[in-house]
Design a protein around this nucleic acid. Structure first.
Lengths: 243, 243
DNA sequence: CGCGGTGTTGAGACCTGTCAAGACGTGTGG
DNA sequence: CCACACGTCTTGACAGGTCTCAACACCGCG
């Protein structure tokens, strides 16, 4: 496991904008403490009052909506460098759970410090505002998958998305990446059943696009995978632009 | 048609936080001009550079993702008082189209003024940041519909959502509201086909929950409708809280 | 060695999609 | 005032993707 530092978060920022050395220090000083959680823990429950946001340094976490029927829908997967719940700063309470998918190390960022940031650092404020807007962009892409893509295409799309996002923080290359979700969790991302996820995975494997074994996603034919997914990475806004 | 003013927007704000008289004036001064568009126009295309955001004063607009195959997915419906693309301020370009569903009057808000807002008015900045986070909350609710709800339930849920949101800006009561989408557009919101939307609408009508005729959604049995939808309005954050 | 979690398989049902045709309705032009 | 046209809504028959339920296999771990 790489050391748990704020570097991936800075890489995520620098992929979208430039910040000064002073601003970088402000970002580092947002963190009040660093905590490690075991895998499969619920870190925050819906409608609970929150006074800090959680920046994921290492591991995988997710946002899940639970339904009365027992059905679940993941609404986002978060990886090293992502804020898991930056939106809790303005929302104060979340509409979903925050869970760990693997053992995870996080940095705690008190909302009080974010509030001070909105007073003293308009540029960083715009960058963090951008980051939550980026979450919404990813949400929209998932909506397209859930609403309009076939099971194969949406699964392929998810793999392409994670490859691109993990690439930004140095956690993936074109051979593959660690993918810690089981088939049931994958089903809850894609709006499918476990059984169908299993068959879809076999389909992707039979087509010689990817293989998922023991938490590792092996990419066999990226160009074809992208084509099946109709994947266009533009929506991840991986380019610098003054915000 | 009610007069096109910024009042619905202020109502939307006041439903979530209080602002001072001075701040209210700042909000009013964000607007550089007011424009009216005909129905069924594309107002902004994906990846086009934008230097202003669009605040909807009157009418219905939407955000749509177009796919190569010709399939479409609406990702949000916007009504009087909503910013259609506040997120374009930090994104600079959008990942989707902006279209008018009805004749619409909008206020143009130059990004330059929003940038100045982030420098001079941290509280208003947090409120507008909240507003884009609210869009993301609605996105998550749609993801749940697209991924985990049946056709009947997600349609019922959409009607409940629009009732609640329109209520905030005084455009609906418990008898119903104007609903200008045709069945094909409704299908593109719900991730269904037109044919199935037609049958689902008949289902809701047979159950004596709602009737949709000539652009008017008549609500017959709201408690039952909510139950079918498993609708819980908390996610709309319709309560004041210091942001 | 047994156990719990996870992955795999089969058969059948069901929800939603596809395709195609026809009905309705409103505005327009002759 | 009628005829027509176009968009929209409706219907039927059938196909197909995904779900359900149940059983079984695999595997790491205590």
């Amino acid at each position: 496991m790489p050391p748990s530092t704020i570097e991936p978060h800075l890489r995520k920022i620098y992929a979208r904008d430039d910040i000064s050395a002073e601003e970088e220090q402000v970002v580092r000083d947002l963190v009040s403490e660093v905590v490690t959680y075991e895998a499969h823990r619920v870190i925050a429950r819906p409608w609970q009052d929150l006074n800090h946001s959680t920046l994921l340094l290492e591991g995988w976490m997710g946002r899940v909506r639970d339904m009365e029927s027992g059905a679940r829908q993941f609404t986002e997967l978060t990886i090293a460098g992502d804020f898991v719940d930056l939106h809790s700063f303005t929302l104060k309470q979340l509409d979903h759970e925050i869970v760990t998918l693997t053992r995870s190390t996080v940095a705690i960022v008190p909302h009080e410090r974010l509030k001070q940031l909105t007073i003293d650092h308009p540029h960083l404020t715009r960058i963090y505002w951008f980051m939550t807007n980026l979450d919404a962009v990813i949400h929209r892409e998932w909506m397209v998958s859930l609403g309009r893509r076939s099971a194969v295409a949406s699964m392929a799309h998810l793999f392409c998305e994670m490859l691109a996002r993990l690439g930004v923080v140095g956690r993936a290359d074109e051979r593959g990446f660690e993918f810690p979700l089981n088939q049931s969790q994958l089903a809850d991302c894609l709006g499918l059943t476990t059984v169908h996820v299993n068959r879809t995975l076999q389909d992707l494997r039979a087509r010689k696009l990817v293989e998922l074994r023991s938490q590792w996603l092996k990419i066999i034919d990226l160009p074809q995978l992208r084509q099946v997914a109709e994947f266009d990475p533009s929506y991840l806004y991986i380019h610098k632009r003054r915000r």
